[in-house]
Design a protein around this nucleic acid. Structure first.
Lengths: 334, 334
DNA sequence: ACTTAAAATCGAAACGTTTCGATAGGGAGC
DNA sequence: GCTCCCTATCGAAACGTTTCGATTTTAAGT
C-alpha cells in the first residue's frame, strides 16, 4: 500500500542505496541519475518513512521543545510565538518539534518521555526551567539551546534578546525628543534582563553626555509587575527631582507608571514621556499607545532551530550567547 | 550503548518475544514471568525504542494536532489550553502529540508533514480549519476529531462545549436574582455557538414562564466583537423597552455592553445585571468582574485524546457530538 | 505414569531505511 | 589494446521492535 524506497528504485531502474544517496543529498551520484530519481520520487509521491530512517541512522529527526506550563498558557503569547517560529523553521529542515510542558518545580515523574526514550537529536528550552531538569539534561550529551534564559551555572548556548541595545535605543529616542532628565523604573535587578536594561540605560546616558543621577533610578521593587511600576512612580513623584521622561524596565511596569501619572493628572506624553520594553499585546491598545521595544519572537524560535540543526549536522556543540536584535516601536507615549 | 529488548530478554532469561508480550500488556504470559520481566525492565531502565516499534507494528504512537496560526498565537489562550490538556492526556497513553499550525487559507504547500509521511494514528483539529485541508484529510482513512468546530458537510466527530446548557445556566441565574426582563445581545447568528446560546436563552425563558420578547433580542451585528456589543447595547437603550439584565453571547460583547452602560452612567449590577460567555482571561479583571460561563479547556483537549486513543485501539470510528459541560462563574456583574 | 489439550515460550521473518564494503564501468596513460 | 584508478552503482547487513507459526511446558484426566 505505502510507497517505499524500493518502489522508487524499481521504477527508476536503480538500486535502493542509490536512491538513499539522493534522498539524503549525498555526493557520488551522476546528475543524470539524480534527476531521474528525483523525478520518480515526485511521480510516485514518495515520502521517506520517518521511523525506518530513525532506526537505520542514528538521527531521530526530532527536536524537543520544553517550557513550563505557566509560560505556555499565560495570556501574553510570548513563548507561544517563539514556539511558532521554531515549528515553522523546523519544517524547512524536515524536523519534527516535540513540544512538552513541565511544571515549575522539578519532579522525576515529569521527565519528558522523549528524553527517556532518547527520541530527539537536541532540545530547546524556552524561559526559566527548573534546575532539576537542567541537571538531568546535562547528564546526556544532547545539544541543548536555551531561549530567553541562561542557566545559572555551567557552559551553555543561549538565545537572548539584546536588552542592552534595546535600552540604548529607548533612551536615545527619548534624548532625541529633547529629554535630558530621564528616570529608570525597574525592580528585581538580579534578573539578568532587567539588569541589562539598566546597563543600557546608563550607557546611553553616558553616550549622550547626560550625567547619571541615582535619584532617578528606582530599582527597589522586588518584582516587575504593574503594581510595582505604580509604586515606584509614586516614589519618583514624591521625591520632587525634576524629570521629563520615564524608561520602564518592562511594559507591565510602564502600565503602572501610566496609572500613577493619570491619577496625578500628568499628561503623557506632553508632560512626561514614557517608554516600556517587551511590546506585549495590549501595549498598542492602551491610551496613549505605549512606545516600547520589541523583539521578533518568531525569529528567536527560528534561530534556535537553525542553530540546533547546524549543531546536529556538524556534531559540534556551540557555546555562548546569541543576541537577537530588538527594535523600538514608537507610538503615542513619546 | 542503548539498552534494547534483547538485553532485557537476556538478563531475565527469556526470549525477546516474551518481553514484547509483556511490554504490550498482552495475555499469554505467566504472572511470575511477567513480574520477573517487569523487574528487569525497571532495573535496566529500559524504554522501548519508539521508531523500532513504529516500524514493526503499524501503529505510529503519534497523534497530529492542527490549528491555525491565528488561533494558536492570539492573546486569549483558548486553544493553547486545549492543546495543553491534550498533551497531558497523551502522556498517560504513551502517545506523542505532533503540533503543527496551518494558515487560515489552504495551500498545498501547507500540508502537515506528518500527513504526507503517514506518521500519525489520528489527527485532532482545533477550531475552524480551512475546508481544503479537511477535504484532503478525508481522503485518508485516518480518525479525525474536531474540537470546538464542526465541519459544514459530511459525518464527523466533534467535541464541543455545551452552549445551550451554558446559556440556560446564565439566564436561570439571572432569573433567580429576580430578573424577568432579560435582553440578549448577540450577532452573527449563523455561527453555531452563537445560535446555540440564543436557543438556550429562549429555552430558559420558556422554562421559567417568561415570554420571549423579540424587542429584547439583538442579533443584527455581523460579528461578535466588543465594538458590536457596544453598538447593540446602545440600540437596546435607545429603544426604551424596559429591561434589568443582559445576557451577552460572549465576553467580548459583554465588554462592549459594559462600556456603553458606563457611558450612560448605568451601574452594574445595581441597575442592570450582565452575564457573558467564555470566561476569557480578562473577564475576572474588569470592573466589575464579569459573571460568565466557563468551559474547562484542558478537559476538552484531554477528552479528544482519550477518545482518539479509544478509536485507535478499537479500530472503529465514532461519529457525533460530544458536549462538554460548562459552568457558570458568578462574579460581581450580577 | 501416560496421554492430550491448552497455555506459555520461543525463533525468525518482516518493517523501510542507512551504511559500507564490494563490484562494475570508463577514461587516461602507456 | 591493456592496465590502473577513480567514480558511480550495487548488495546485504544492521537498526530494535512486533507478530505469528512452531515448539516446549504444564496440568488435567485417565
Amino acid at each position: 500500500m505505502t510507497i517505499t524506497i524500493k518502489d522508487v528504485a524499481r521504477k527508476a531502474g536503480v538500486s535502493v542505496s542509490t536512491v538513499s544517496l539522493v534522498i539524503n543529498n549525498k555526493p557520488g551520484v551522476t546528475d543524470a541519475t539524480r534527476q531521474k530519481i528525483l523525478k520518480t520520487i515526485d511521480e510516485l509521491n514518495y515520502h521517506p518513512h520517518h521511523f525506518a530512517r530513525g532506526l537505520a541512522s542514528k538521527r531521530k529527526g526530532n527536536i524537543g521543545f520544553i517550557l513550563t506550563t505557566y509560560h505556555f498558557s499565560r495570556a501574553e503569547p510570548f513563548y507561544t510565538r517563539i514556539f511558532l517560529g521554531s515549528e515553522l523553521e523546523a519544517r524547512n529542515h524536515n524536523y519534527y518539534i516535540l513540544l512538552t510542558t513541565v511544571e515549575s518545580k522539578f519532579s522525576r515523574k515529569d521527565i519528558p518521555r522523549f528524553l527517556l526514550e532518547k527520541n530527539i537529536d537536541g532540545v530547546i528550552l524556552a524561559g526559566k526551567i527548573p534546575a532539576g531538569l537542567i541537571d538531568y539534561l546535562n547528564r546526556f550529551d544532547l545539544p541543548v539551546i536555551y531561549i530567553d534564559y541562561v542557566p545559572p551555572k555551567g557552559k551553555s548556548l543561549a538565545i537572548l534578546m539584546d536588552n542592552v541595545d534595546g535600552a540604548i535605543q529607548a533612551v536615545t529616542h527619548l534624548n532625541e525628543k529633547g529629554h535630558k532628565k530621564i528616570a529608570f523604573i525597574g525592580g528585581d535587578i538580579s534578573h539578568p534582563s532587567i539588569g541589562a536594561r539598566l546597563e543600557g540605560y546608563k550607557s546611553a546616558l553616558k553616550k549622550n553626555r547626560i550625567p547619571v543621577s541615582e535619584n532617578l533610578i528606582f530599582t527597589s521593587a522586588s518584582d516587575t509587575t504593574t503594581q510595582s511600576g505604580y509604586e515606584m512612580t509614586c516614589h519618583l513623584l514624591e521625591q520632587k527631582t525634576p524629570f521629563t521622561a520615564i524608561f520602564a524596565a518592562n511594559d507591565a511596569m510602564a502600565f503602572g507608571c501610566m496609572k500613577c501619572l493619570r491619577e496625578k493628572h500628568i499628561r503623557i506624553p506632553d508632560q512626561v514621556a514614557l517608554v516600556g520594553f517587551d511590546d506585549v499585546e495590549i501595549a498598542s491598545q492602551m491610551e496613549p499607545k505605549l512606545t516600547t521595544v520589541r523583539v521578533n519572537k518568531e525569529d528567536m524560535g527560528a534561530l534556535a532551530v537553525k542553530t540546533m540543526v547546524d549543531i546536529i549536522h556538524s556534531e559540534r556543540m556551540l557555546q555562548g550567547k546569541f543576541l537577537v536584535p530588538v527594535e523600538l516601536v514608537v507610538r503615542e507615549s513619546t
